[in-house]
């Protein structure tokens, strides 16, 4: 078999998952299909598989994250890997120095899979160049968060039966959101119509060329939407730096029943968490009938199992 053939036959011919950028639509769909199986596994009483038996997975988190870290931990354990969590305090050592030093140290321990979250865009790429194992990006600054976009896609597909031609409105702090970037790329790759809705101070420069329709009003942006995806607004950006105040933001951009009514009747609401109820989303919506927020968490574990499994298939000695 030639190298080319191997490439074609491999549903995920990459060593790492650093971002959605660069993935082919059929590779994304392949991961989603694999994740569907993982959902079934996770719903059984006996949840443990042996795909990653003997493999070592290290979760290296330079930024605190309860849900993403536990989701990756559970995913690894359900596939039989030995999982170690490493939380690296930002203040203890000079930033960056920690990254390379830690990478070298960890690499010497021969991990097979390294799951990394870092506060700086591109940090995961830098690290991937310095280690010998497969690296999964669990969020690098405002750059990408590929497993979040995959789990969002899986959640949408399970409810709407498709992604193509759906209208998805991503609302809130687009400028600083890795979730928004990964979702814009993924949803476009699978043929959705993507909108962003935010005050202009929370939109990145050049947004109109990023494959989205841009709206500054929730009313227009949500009109006819199938999916309303809310983003978290960081506390330090609420009070005057990017928007004048919480109450003004909530008034114009917080998702409440009135604004949700502009979307399609069967529109579904998503949020990557953790939520600020009363800032970007009203409690009644977050916990309401149209909300998929809790299901997103379940899909998160499944998608991460799929990703780990796909990467493990490419590891040496497999």
């Amino acid at each position: 078999m030639t190298v080319k053939d191997t490439h074609r036959d491999n549903p995920y011919p990459h060593r790492h998952l650093l971002g959605i950028e660069g993935l082919h639509p059929h590779e994304i769909l392949g991961l989603l299909d694999r994740a569907e199986e993982a959902v079934e596994v996770s719903r059984q009483i006996h949840k443990r598989r042996l795909v990653l038996q003997g493999r070592t997975q290290i979760n290296l988190f330079f930024e605190n994250s309860t849900r993403t870290q536990s989701s990756f931990e559970l995913a690894g354990k359900r596939l039989g890997a030995d999982v170690m969590n490493m939380a690296v305090s930002q203040s203890s050592v000079k930033k960056g120095e920690t990254l390379i030093d830690t990478a070298a140290t960890l690499n010497a321990m021969h991990p097979d899979l390294l799951v990394v979250r870092h506060h700086a865009a591109g940090a995961v790429h830098l690290l991937a160049r310095k280690v010998g194992c497969s690296v999964v990006n669990a969020g690098d600054g405002p750059h990408e968060h590929p497993t979040q976009a995959l789990l969002d896609a899986l959640t949408i597909r399970r409810h709407k039966g498709k992604i193509a031609r759906l209208t998805v409105a991503i609302c809130g702090d687009i400028a600083h959101s890795r979730v928004a970037r990964s979702n814009i790329i993924l949803l476009n790759a699978l043929g959705a119509r993507v909108r962003v809705v935010a005050p202009s101070t929370l939109l990145p420069s050049g947004i109109a060329k990023m494959g989205v329709e841009v709206f500054n009003s929730m009313r227009k942006g949500l009109e006819g939407a199938d999916i309303v995806m809310m983003l978290r607004l960081q506390r330090e950006r609420m009070n005057g730096a990017f928007v004048p105040s919480v109450r003004e933001y909530y008034r114009y951009y917080g998702l409440d029943a009135e604004k949700l009514a502009y979307a399609k009747d069967d529109a579904l609401v998503m949020h990557p968490g953790p939520m600020n109820r009363g800032v970007e989303i009203d409690a009644s919506i977050a916990d309401g009938a149209q909300s998929l927020i809790r299901e997103q968490v379940e899909m998160g574990v499944a998608v991460r199992m799929a990703v780990l499994e796909a990467l493990a298939a490419n590891l040496p000695n497999n």
Binding site: E21, A121, G122, D140, G141, P142, H143, E144, A175, R178, R181, P204, S205, G206, I207, K209, M210
Partner: peptide, 15 residues
């Protein structure tokens, strides 16, 4: 440099 490239990379831009 501020612009589309920086926006995709998740980097803050120098206008």
């Amino acid at each position: 440099n501020a612009g589309l490239n920086a926006s995709w990379k998740g980097l803050s831009g120098v206008s």
